[in-house]
Amino acid sequence: MKPARLIAITLSLAAVLHLGIIWLVPRAITGIFMSRVIAQAGANHALTPPLPTDTARSVVMPSPDLLYAVCVYDLSAGPVRVTAQPPGGYWSAAVYDRNSDNVFTLNDHDLAGRPLDLILTQAADPTLTARFPNARQVPPPHATGVLLVRALVLDSAHMQPALQAQASVRCTPIAPAG
């Protein structure tokens, strides 16, 4: 085979592999994170880690000013309801697809004092509206992903309300209507 052709084949193959790696990286990193959370708390169950410090190693660049709660959702067996009671300060609930995209966010201003009541579902379902009239239905792009709740801890006075808000996060699979 001519050297020029060999070089062209090598470079073409390298380009395809390069794009494959770049495509795979966010999915692999998110997948590893999800596996670790599932190993600790299970799917569709909230994990409530402490305020991040230098020993936190689960996610790069954690904010030391935010108390997180995390839930890995798996909608393959049906919708999952997420409820929480936000504290007085900044608070948000963000839904991430399995490729790490932030596909939905709601913060305490959006809720205007109301508790969080979300239903993660693969398709909008009118029967769920009837059963949970105050819940907002959110259809993520895929059946699995991550829900991340952030509560601001500006100083020590914010810690207790943030801890209460963190403890209030519930991710619960919805049982079929009986």
Binding site: I22, F33, S92, Y96, D97, S100, N102, N107
Partner: peptide, 26 residues
């Protein structure tokens, strides 16, 4: 960063250096 409109490279770089970034409106 963080957005579903992010391109291949932005999404990968964010995953490596700041996983679970929120989108810019937040």
């Amino acid at each position: 960063a963080g957005s579903a409109q992010a391109g291949l490279y932005t999404r990968a770089r964010v995953a490596v250096t700041g996983l679970f970034a929120l989108n810019a409106s937040e």
